[in-house]
């Protein structure tokens, strides 16, 4: 197993930092899957421990100038590592003005992702900062646990409104109750509501875009006004919204009535899928 990559372009470094920053805000610990073309950050919680699933793809070519890897074997040319994204972020946070960053898989006393940062100086001497981020190697037999989650047939898909205003609203709703009902329809409407003994609050968005459905056939008879809804943990939703350090080009919310809430974030080349556990009602 071998991995080394080098980031040189300053805008790539900053973009990489922001993307990792976003990931670290919503995931404490996850699996980093390294393939010849892509970095994946994967979280696949068991239902008993929360049931969150996150799948994030970073095409390496958009970030790395040099990229070399050998997987566990020729057939399975991949590496699976368990990492704490926040540690990686800490390591590259110093690199905002760096000439280059090298990331290597090393074996010190334990397996590490070693981040070498070359910082600019006024004199001829170079300043090299080295961080060792401990990781653990995920054995081959565990790999099937980290497959891309299958997408169910969604009842509704809708583009989310501006994250910034949505964040305010969800933060306020968080102070009222623990769970929030998310509802949307094919008429471009999105509804967020909380309700307690004391108060019920609901916010309505109109004129949002419904992305075109790939398979129109199965539910053509569905009324565009009919809402599909699901109840989710408000703190998790707030955390997801406040973690955004990049303003994504597009955030799509997909709902399977009372079963699944799935967010799909797309920002330039990076994509992130977030399956948020639904609270049974």
């Amino acid at each position: 197993m071998r991995f080394r990559g080098k980031l040189v372009d300053i805008s790539c470094i900053q973009h990489f930092t922001r993307v990792l920053g976003t990931i670290s805000k919503i995931i404490k610990s996850c699996v980093l899957r390294i393939t010849p073309t892509t970095w994946y950050f994967i979280l696949s919680e068991k239902v008993v421990s929360g049931g969150v699933q996150i799948w994030c793809e970073l095409p390496q070519g958009h970030f790395f100038d040099e990229y070399a890897m050998d997987g566990v074997s020729a057939e399975d040319n991949e590496i699976y590592l368990e990492v704490v994204p926040e540690n990686l972020v800490k390591a590259i946070r110093t690199a905002q003005a760096a000439k280059w960053i090298k990331i290597k898989l090393t074996k010190k006393h334990a397996p590490c992702l070693t981040v070498e940062v070359d910082l600019p100086t006024v004199s001829a001497h170079s300043r090299l900062v080295v961080h060792d981020v401990p990781v653990s190697v995920v054995p081959h037999r565990m790999w099937p646990d980290y497959q891309e989650p299958e997408l169910p047939q969604f009842d509704v898909s809708i583009c989310m409104p501006q994250i910034k205003t949505l964040r305010n609203i969800v933060e306020k709703m968080k102070n009222l109750n623990n769970c929030l009902t998310l509802a949307a329809n094919y008429n471009g409407e999105l509804k967020l509501s909380v309700s307690t003994d004391m108060v019920s609050v609901s916010t309505h968005y109109q004129d949002l875009v419904n992305p075109v459905r790939r398979d129109m056939g199965s539910d053509e008879d569905r009324e565009p006004q009919a809402f599909s809804e699901a109840k989710i943990d408000i703190r998790r939703f707030a955390q997801f919204l406040s973690g955004q350090q990049v303003i994504p080009n597009r955030v799509i919310c997909n709902i399977v009535h009372k079963r699944v809430v799935h967010f799909y974030l797309q920002h330039e080349d990076v994509s992130l899928q977030y399956f948020m556990p639904v609270i049974a009602t």
Partner: peptide, 12 residues
């Protein structure tokens, strides 16, 4: 109402 977004609240 703000920017076309509506919020209804009902407080006991």
């Amino acid at each position: 109402e703000e920017d076309g977004v509506l919020t209804d609240c009902s407080i006991k």
